[in-house]
Simulated scan of single mutants.
Amino acid sequence: MTYKATCFGIAITAMIAAPALAEYPERTIELTIPAGAGGGTDTSARKLAILLEKKLGTSIAVINIGGGGGSVGATQFMLTEPDGYSLFATWNSPLTTVPQVQSVAYTLDSFTPIASTSESAYTLCVKADFPATTGEEFLAELAANPGKYTYGNDGIGGTMQLAAERIFQAKGIEAVAIPFGGAGETLQNFLGDHVDIYGGSIAPVLPYVQSGDVKCPLLTSAAGVKALPGASGLEAVGLADKETLLWRAILGPKDLDPSIVDKLAVAIDESVNDPSYVEFLATMGEVPKVVKGEALKIRLENEYKALAEVSKALGL
């Protein structure tokens, strides 16, 4: 083949590919959520989808596939075609936590990171009469009473348990983990005095903090959060490097075209920072956080490694 023929072939290929990409998306995008309807990830993803439809100029169909802590939906999604018409709206646990405690068919390399959307600290909360208010006092009370206090969490090897144990192990604390089926169930058992400490996301417990029945001494984030002004971030207790967050992201299947990834990342960034979405996130105790592409991949890998160390130490 001559040099001229080769160049002609490349030019033709570029001419065919360019219009196809320029027209993307030209049909409905399916957005898989690895959880049932009504939860935090589902609610935030559906709100975001409305804004993305306007940015991308197409409709988005939401598909809920719950089960296995998000692993069922993740497993089914990884089999979709990398054509840009199948996207995955998830929280971090199915990718970085669940694989630590159960066998899954996927790895981090089974997905193409596009962009994260929001993040929030988990929190550890107690009843108003608990003998500690600040994060430092709370940790000191637990350390002085090994094995006395129980804390509810999101299941054996769940993100909340691993987040708490990263903190407790650093301080030599022995607390008894009691697993439940999510933050809602944990809250019910905490309010019913079946566990001493609530461990979970901020939104479910916030009304009880505002009423004065509950106080939250400690967060799992390095810094404090506006939703819980009385809670200490880990930086305040000398444990900033033990930060574990609840965060959400949009991913694609493996081998998704980089040009499509870039286009989607821009649309997600603009939608996440839309004032209406920022206001919505605040009601959930979350803040916008957009980390794109390779940087998101690194975040996933680093969190996976950190939680693997904690899981191994716990014998999970």
Results as ranks from 00 to 15, higher is better:
M15W: 14
A18Q: 14
Y85G: 04
W247V: 00
T96G: 08
N153V: 08
K55N: 13
V195T: 09
P229K: 15
E235L: 05
G199T: 14
S311V: 10
G39R: 15
G212M: 06
Q169M: 14
Y304S: 12
Q102P: 00
L314Y: 00
A132E: 05
S93Y: 08
P19F: 11
G40K: 13
S103L: 07
L142H: 08
V261W: 01
Y106M: 09
S259R: 12
W247R: 04
P82S: 12
L296C: 09
I298G: 05
A35M: 09
G155C: 08
T244F: 08
E309N: 05
G200N: 09
G293D: 04
K215Y: 06
E243H: 07
E165Q: 14
Y149F: 14
G158A: 07
Q161F: 12
P19R: 15
G9T: 13
A163L: 10
S118V: 04
A144E: 13
A227V: 04
V72K: 11
P217Q: 09
L300C: 07
G192S: 14
I197R: 03
N64P: 03
V72P: 01
K54A: 15
G67E: 11
D109R: 11
I167E: 01
P99A: 15
S93A: 14
A170W: 10
R248P: 00
I298V: 15
E141Y: 09
S59I: 01
V278T: 11
R27T: 13
L162N: 10
K263A: 05
G9W: 03
A18T: 14
Y149H: 10
A306Y: 05
C7V: 15
L206C: 02
G152Q: 01
A22M: 14
G57H: 14
S120K: 06
Q161W: 02
K148S: 08
S103G: 06
V176G: 06
G68T: 09
P25W: 13
